[in-house]
């Protein structure tokens, strides 16, 4: 299953791209409208793209009136990304979304470009859970010191799945002035640099929770998607790659099927968690084998 990462596609401006996805994830919507951060908002670095958009969105009222209805007409299931600054913010949006045809609510608990919510992830998940029966995915930051522990707490609080990962905070300086290139100073780093970070997060959270996971972070090819699935992702989202290649959904899907077959998997989904089996084999296999041999001797 291939989705877009939240904030990496406007399905109403590019419906042809959106229709090639298995589900469309909205840009994060907050209770009140937000104009977003002052420009300059993006800068390419040596290892990826830095952005500081700041959750620009029309607010939940206008979203429900003007944005969601045409999104639902596009065809693919719509996942609504919800953001806020307190558990009550998330709960309020979930109450409103519960009556809609949105397929999933993704709780954006990890925007690096706005103030962090005052409540902990698990408290936000619990508050959202109380307001909606829709599947809830918790989107976590790779900067968490122990992302698996937070994922476990989110699962206990009622999360049905995880979205891993958001961007990680970074800074780029203008080479001439040595001043920050973004107006807000720091921004969220996406693209190739995020790939191993995302893999580690997915790997850790799969082991900790077993929940469905949308893996994302630097995916450019089917090979990258397969690696996330092997680490434990049940779906893969495309982010920065969509900016350079709006045809990426079809391309990555085809490459993924090919890569999975090359590795002997009947379907990409069959590769889920494969890295764990191989880690177990590498760590325990030879030792177990030695023990067995020793016992024999």
């Amino acid at each position: 299953m291939i989705l877009n990462a939240s904030g990496c596609l406007d399905p109403l401006v590019a419906p042809d791209v959106a229709r090639r996805l298995d589900a469309v994830v909205t840009k994060t919507v907050t209770p009140l409208p937000r104009e977003g951060n002052a420009p300059v908002r993006i800068a390419e670095t040596d290892s990826g793209l830095l952005n500081s958009i700041g959750l620009a969105n029309p607010g939940i009222d206008r979203f429900l009136a003007d944005v969601l209805p045409p999104l639902l007409e596009l065809g693919p299931p719509v996942w609504v990304s919800v953001g806020g600054f307190s558990a009550a913010d998330y709960a309020r949006s979930c109450t409103r979304l519960d009556a809609t045809a949105a397929a999933v609510v993704e709780l954006n608990l990890s925007c690096p470009n706005v103030a962090a919510p005052e409540d902990e992830a698990a408290a936000i998940v619990a508050a959202a859970r109380a307001e909606t029966d829709k599947p809830l995915y918790a989107k976590l930051s790779p900067a968490l010191p122990d992302i698996a522990a937070v994922a476990g707490a989110a699962a206990e609080a009622g999360a049905d799945g995880l979205s891993l990962v958001n961007t990680i905070r970074g800074l780029a300086l203008d080479p001439a002035t040595l001043r920050p290139r973004l107006a807000t100073g720091t921004g969220g780093l996406s693209g190739p640099a995020l790939r191993p970070v995302a893999l580690a997060a997915v790997h850790a959270c799969f082991r900790a929770t077993g929940l469905p996971i949308v893996g994302m972070g630097g995916v450019e090819t089917g090979r990258h998607a397969l690696e996330l699935i092997a680490a434990g992702a049940s779906a893969v989202a495309l982010g920065t790659v969509l900016f350079a290649d709006p045809g990426a959904p079809d391309r990555v899907r085809a490459e993924l099927a090919e890569e999975a077959a090359l590795h002997g998997f009947g379907t990409p989904a069959a590769a889920r968690g494969a890295s764990h089996e191989r880690v177990a084999a590498a760590v325990n296999g030879p030792r177990a084998e030695r023990e067995r041999l020793r016992l024999k001797l």
């Binding site: 904030g7 990496c8 596609l9 406007d10 401006v13 590019a14 791209v17 840009k27 977003g36 420009p39 300059v40 908002r41 993006i42 800068a43 390419e44 793209l49 952005n51 958009i53 620009a56 920065t240 969509l242 900016f243 350079a244 709006p246």
Partner: peptide
């Protein structure tokens, strides 16, 4: 002119 990552409304980077 503005810095753009996508050119088709996806990235919101070119807001002015």
């Amino acid at each position: 002119e503005a810095p753009m990552a996508c050119g088709f409304g996806a990235c919101y980077g070119c807001a002015v």
